[in-house]
Amino acid sequence: MSEIHRLEARQVCCSRGDRELLRCLDVRLESGQLMYLRGPNGSGKTTLLRTLAGLLRAETGEIRWDGEPIQRIRDQYHADLLYLGHLNALKDDLNAIENLRMDAAVRGSSLDEQAAWQLLTDIGLRGCEDLPIKYLSQGQKRRVALARLWHSDAALWILDEPFSALDVAAVDALQAVIRDHLGRGGMAILTTHQEVELTSGTVCRVTLGGEIPEVRHV
């Protein structure tokens, strides 16, 4: 992940139905930077995240990855991206190991059984590996979903409320993994009220909900 990447949003407007959610966002994120997205409910945080991930088409404006519009280099962009929405994207009828291996396969990488076991140990879910996901608690499900981060080599992480439903220990572990990711030159975009303490790099705060989005680099 030593390459330098950059993500730019130029004059991006998003709307949902007839309602304009977001007016003219201009923001730029580079390797090692973290972006917080804040705003009241319904201010378009998730919509913006989905737009940045390329799931939603921006009404106007353009999103560029390393200078190229993301629609044009979709496969390449998605290889560099890890997106985790508010849904866990886990199949209820499969167990944690199967889910993790399946997910890796969809992303085009592979995760052998041994590595999946190791991953479960890392996130503290050893002992639940044979249970179908539907028998796990909300917090445990979220942990399995977040386990993707532990073996991800994607440069850009887009995470929608990653800290919700997690206990204190899991929050600490997640903060650590995000910190390491940024330390290695990765980028992350989060919607959260939980701060991640950084050892290096800069933070960009975007606040939605006003007339135009407010962007502050710290």
């Binding site: 991930a53 390329g54 799931l55 496969d75 390449q76 998605h78 290889a79 991206l81 997106y83 929405g85 849904l87 994207a89 997910d103 969809v106 992303r107 085009g108």
Partner: peptide, 8 residues
Amino acid sequence: EQILLAPQ
């Protein structure tokens, strides 16, 4: 969503 975001 994950399938839509797959790099394939």
